[in-house]
């Protein structure tokens, strides 16, 4: 059997380097043990539910509102991040200013800072008596414990995804085309939207998708600022946690399954659009 497999593969290319079966074995074993087998449990548990039960759980008023809060806030946050991500990447690649290296290093802060710390820091910043929340409270706008607060936390955790997706593309971008466009008399704005933007668009989309998926699944940094008011600021991951705390495993699994499907669909969609646009721009 083993021999046969090797022979089939030999048509494509011989494994000249020794150690294929060992390294493949270690990879598959660890992947299976840590990721795939536990992940299969979710399908296993969900399959024990009848379709009616499943439907009843995920169309519960509270659950639907959780999905809507998570999705809408993550969407707005990802959009805001796309705009600021382009600006930040542009400034970091094209301009020189003091402390640029430090600023560049700071972008990764949301990756490095534990989400729980980010959560309590943002909360105390945006509550009515906080530094920023206080300013808005005078204008009658509440931020913490509303969907604005959730969105801000999602902007915080999403920003590095967009900046770090766009930055390498901008760095590689040859400015010959821009110069050509400038010499032909195009305005700065036109050059940006007609020459530069199409080039960075696929990268921006990747960043947007990653930020969106992260925002939907985010728990630590959002849960503190959300305030968890039922039907208003309860995010979907929090619903899973509270179902688990009540030992309602089936409910938690059903909610999680829908959330998983949403995240995978987003990533798939982004992938498809990316392949299309890169074909388009390359031809």
């Amino acid at each position: 059997m083993q021999q046969q497999i090797v022979k089939v593969k030999n048509k494509k290319g011989i494994h000249v380097i020794p150690g294929f079966s060992l390294s493949m074995g270690v990879t598959i074993t660890l992947l299976g043990l840590i990721v795939l087998i536990p992940l299969a449990s979710i399908a296993l548990t969900a399959s024990k539910l009848s379709p009616m039960e499943f439907f009843k759980i995920v169309t519960d008023k509270q659950v639907v509102s959780g999905y809507i809060v998570s999705l809408s806030c993550a969407l707005i946050a990802a959009l805001v991040n796309s705009v600021f991500g382009v600006i930040l990447a542009w400034v970091l690649v094209r301009y020189d200013f003091p402390c640029k290296r430090i600023v560049d290093g700071m972008i990764e802060l949301p990756f490095a800072l534990p989400t729980a710390v980010a959560g309590i820091a943002l909360t105390s910043l945006y509550v009515d008596k906080g530094w920023i929340g206080g300013i808005f409270a005078q204008a009658g706008i509440e931020i913490a414990y509303t969907s604005i607060g959730i969105t801000i936390a999602m902007i915080f955790i999403g920003i590095p995804f967009v900046v770090r997706s766009i930055q390498p593309v901008l760095e590689k971008l040859d400015n010959e085309y821009e110069e050509a466009a400038a010499i032909l008399g195009a305005s700065r704005r036109r050059i940006f939207f007609k020459v530069i933007f199409p080039e960075i668009f696929p990268a921006m989309l990747t960043g947007f998708g990653l930020a969106l998926a992260r925002g939907i699944g985010e728990y630590g940094s959002v849960v503190f600022i959300a305030g968890n008011i039922p039907l208003k600021t309860q995010i979907a991951p929090l619903l899973i946690v509270s179902k688990l705390e009540q030992y309602k495993y089936a409910d938690a699994t059903a909610i999680a399954l829908i959330l998983l499907i949403i995240s995978f669909l987003i990533l798939l969609l982004i992938n498809i659009i990316q392949v299309r646009t890169s074909k388009y721009t390359n031809s």
Binding site: V35, P38, S41, L44, G217, P237, I240, Y249, A256, S263
Partner: peptide
């Protein structure tokens, strides 16, 4: 497949281990 943990909400990551090794886990 290797990238799956990136796409999964951390809460769901916890959940799958409860469903595997917890009281009701297989």
């Amino acid at each position: 497949l290797i990238d799956i943990p990136f796409a999964i909400s951390p809460v769901i990551a916890g959940l799958i281990f409860i469903l595997t090794f917890g009281n009701i886990g297989w």
